[in-house]
Design a binder for these strands. Structure first.
Lengths: 194, 194
DNA sequence: GTCTATAAACCGATAGAC
DNA sequence: GTCTATCGGTTTATAGAC
């Protein structure tokens, strides 16, 4: 059973991802959620900022889990990384180049304008980096390499989303998939050599 | 001598970069530009959309040229790429993590909401990729590798900007600088061997 | 407690004074 | 042609009806 608050957060997640935070009105969120206007301030007394903060944390956690599950489903880490980038491209294409990272647009909008939301976005990315670094270490990457490599992989995915969405093409995800697979492969073979 | 139109475009470039397109009002742009309100519709009859389109093209061209000049100033392509990433980090830090890519926030905002501006952003990125690919070929990268490598480098830089701005740290630019230098180095040595 | 009606401010855009 | 005053619409937020 879905509660009103969950429906509101589902709607805000989708709209913020496609239109950004400042580009989305709370009335539009409530219309999509099929909730009356006043219910927003009942469930989110802090108004739009609180809605945004909870949306960032919830959508960020959901997206990170989804990506990690995809990585864990393939045993070879090099092919896992490649598959994750290609799968992101397929999702993008099948949603009309709308559904990429749920917090990226918000992150750029708030980075210099809203300290509280900036920190909320940072915490999501930091959790992703930590999770990916741990997974890389389990896959045979040297411990000193895991964090820089995780930062690079997530940065590249986020940047590829920007180029792919404005190009309406998955080419950049194919190119970055190969590059990231090569970096992971290099790192593992360097660790095994000593 | 700076014209009113140039002052308006300078102001819109800075404000759109920091606050995004939907987060910036045209009244705020004119206030920063020290221009009266009516002058916007004199110089930009198409209103905010025309202002945005010209801002994207102008700021995008300026930023691409600036980065390319930085790349050309160092002879070794591997160290050029590393230096460009590190320099971007220094600029970011010295501007309070505000001045990154001038069109990235706009690109994500308009990708699914404004077809004309989406294309304008795509054209800017496409010009950057073509310029960087040509530069890489001149540096010894195999012709078949130049475009995928250019796409990867620009994607990684754009993504690193997102993480760096919300983290208020240049660490991700240091990590990605090393990774991109490694990719370029690998590509050049692969070309020279085969 | 759920929801409607409205407030106060701001948006992009335009008409028209000078 | 430069600029001001204002339009209609929309924004977030709140007050209060039921």
């Amino acid at each position: 059973m879905t509660t009103t608050k969950e429906r509101i957060l589902d709607a805000s997640s989708e709209l913020f991802r496609r239109q950004g935070l400042t580009g989305t009105g709370i009335k539009q969120v409530l219309a999509v959620a099929h909730a009356p206007f006043g219910s927003l301030y009942h469930h989110f007394p802090g108004g739009k900022d609180q809605l945004a903060a909870e949306t960032i944390a919830r959508a960020g956690s959901w997206y990170g889990q989804m990506v990690m599950e995809k990585l864990l489903s393939i045993s070879d880490p090099v092919e896992s990384i490649r598959a994750a980038f290609l799968a992101a491209g397929e999702t993008l294409e099948s949603t009309g180049y709308a559904d990429a990272c749920p917090i990226e647009t918000i992150a750029l909008e708030v980075a210099s304008t809203n300290e509280q939301l900036r920190v909320a976005c940072h915490e999501v990315f930091e959790a992703w980096v930590a999770g990916l670094a741990a997974w890389l270490e389990g896959g045979g990457v040297a411990p000193t390499d895991t964090r820089p490599l995780a930062l690079t992989i997530i940065s590249t995915l986020e940047g590829a989303f920007v180029l792919a969405r404005v190009a309406r093409s998955t080419g950049v995800l194919a190119a970055t998939a190969d590059a990231m697979a090569l970096l992971v492969s290099d790192s593992i073979s360097r660790a095994s050599r000593g």
